[in-house]
Write a protein that binds this DNA or RNA. Structure first.
Length: 422
RNA sequence: GGUGAGGUGGCUGAGUGGUCGAAAGCAGCGCUUUGCUAAAGCGCCGUACCCCAAAAGGGUACCGAGGGUUCGAAUCCCUCCCUCACCGCCA
């Protein structure tokens, strides 16, 4: 959520920053300004009435104590009360309107974010490793089926297409990767491990920007107001919602493994082969809550922490920065980490590391007390460290052997308990 | 699921219809006293929003959330959320 004061004071600046995303947010800015002006006008009138009522009511109390008649004042206050009722409804309505409008306006891209239209304009920042030299590589579906690492047909039998059932060594590999990544981030990168609820309240989904805009992509429980978290970002970032943290306890760094649930509405037919895009997948997520002046540096280190997983596993990857047109709704700046998939002959996104600055914090009222004793909004960041099915796919494709077996990278062997799958 | 108790400022905790944004204590900040520490005394010490070009200043709201009763609600009524205790059930 953007600061209404910023919009009020520098509407042209806000519009021009938003314009770099494409879309027609300028109209939303004009609308929110209109509502804001009406709201303040009504609020001022309401406050004046409240002040009058307060004063007169006290007068009644005083007169009654003196035994004086108060009928006339009472009648007057009753009138004011009616007016207050009307004004109150107006203010409540305008307040809600303004809030809804603000919730629908995306964040301003970072001042030096690469300007571009879509994913084709995303610059490559760096790359690590090299494409493995494989002749006629099999893709993960062929490998996984032959080695019985997962069962797509039976996954679909249980829950529908887009649900995987990992089996045998595949299930074990999945678990090994989770354990490996959690240990890395908690022991070497200084993150605190969290194991949060997978079901979260609506407010949390609003806090981290999944709602209200992307409700059709979320799984919700209809009778209760609970949603299946599409990422651990939701429960973990909201952990301190509505709190005022001490500056000294920042940054907070959390690592959490959770399954992630996504409807993937509108992406039918895209990347649907195998386990690349599914409705439920495992992920280790990194979340940071930082001081505003430190979020940029923390963003870089968070991305580096996620990259470290691929380096230790010896997987070729590249880091791209999202251009303004491709940037997520709430993000100021995002790096995507893409691992090389020999089977697809393409890079697969396994992590998206974003700095939200105070956009989420404002929605969830997450603040800290600065040295001057003033309450300010924290900055929040998150990134996958990493997302599993794609990492799984890239790994078995990269380490496939000519005889159809799969080698396990050395660092992972203690977790997996074997040097190969055959 | 049942029964009971309860949610007040950073914390503890008083307040059951008017002068209560809210006693008192603790913590915090400033000053005085002091060889240092400690202690004592005095003062300050919530948040959000609105008016004002801004500062100064003024105002409104907030006692878990929402609604109601009333001239007036932290205080009375209703609904919801949450916490605690005990009972039942259960991995």
């Amino acid at each position: 959520m953007l600061d209404i004061r910023l919009i009020r004071e520098q509407p042209d600046f806000v519009k021009s920053r938003l314009a770099t995303r494409g879309g027609d947010d300028a109209a939303k800015i004009d609308e929110v300004l209109r509502v804001d002006a009406d709201r303040r006008k009504a609020e001022t009138a309401l406050q004046q009435c409240n002040a009058d009522r307060k004063r007169l009511s006290k007068e009644i109390g005083g007169k009654r104590a003196q035994g004086e008649a108060t009928e006339q004042i009472e009648a007057r206050v009753r009138e004011i009360g009616d007016e207050i009722g009307l004004l109150n409804d107006q203010v409540t309505l305008l307040d809600e309107q303004q809030k809804q409008l603000l919730l629908g306006i995306p964040n301003l891209p970072h001042a030096n974010a690469p300007v571009g239209k879509d994913a084709n304009d995303n610059p490559v920042i760096r790359a690590w490793g090299e494409k493995p030299n494989l002749e006629a590589p099999l893709d993960h579906v062929a490998l996984g089926t032959t080695l019985k690492l997962f069962d797509l047909e039976r996954g679909a039998k249980l829950s529908g297409s887009g649900f995987i059932c990992f089996t045998g060594a595949g299930a074990r590999l999945e678990r090994a990767l989770i354990q490996f990544m959690l240990d890395l981030h908690t022991r070497e990168h200084g993150y605190l491990e969290m194991s949060p609820p997978f079901l979260v309240r609506r407010e949390c989904m609003v806090g981290t920007t999944q709602l209200p805009k992307f409700e059709e992509d979320m799984y919700g429980l209809e009778d209760q107001q609970l949603f299946l978290a599409p990422t651990a970002e939701v429960p973990v970032t909201n952990f301190h919602r509505e709190e005022i943290l001490a500056a000294a306890e920042l940054p907070k760094k959390f690592a959490a493994y959770t399954p992630c649930f996504r409807r993937e509405a509108g992406s039918a037919g895209r990347e649907t082969r195998g386990i690349i895009r599914v409705h439920q997948f495992d992920k280790v997520e990194l979340v940071k809550i930082t001081l505003p002046e430190e979020s940029n540096a923390e963003h870089e280190s968070l991305t580096a922490n996620a990259e470290r997983v691929l380096q230790l596993l010896g997987l070729h990857y590249r880091v791209i920065e999202l251009c303004t047109g491709d940037l997520g709704f709430g993000s100021v700046k995002t790096y995507d980490i893409e691992v090389w998939s020999p089977g697809q002959g393409a890079f697969l996104e396994v992590s998206s590391c974003s700095n939200y600055e105070d956009f989420q914090a404002r929605r969830m009222n997450l603040r800290f007390k600065d040295v001057a004793g003033k309450n300010r909004f924290c900055h929040t960041l998150n990134g996958s460290g990493l997302a599993l099915p794609r990492l799984f796919a890239a790994l078995i494709e990269t380490y496939q052997q000519a005889d159809g077996s799969v080698r396990i990278p050395e660092k992972l062997q203690p977790y997996f308990g074997a040097a190969e799958i055959r």
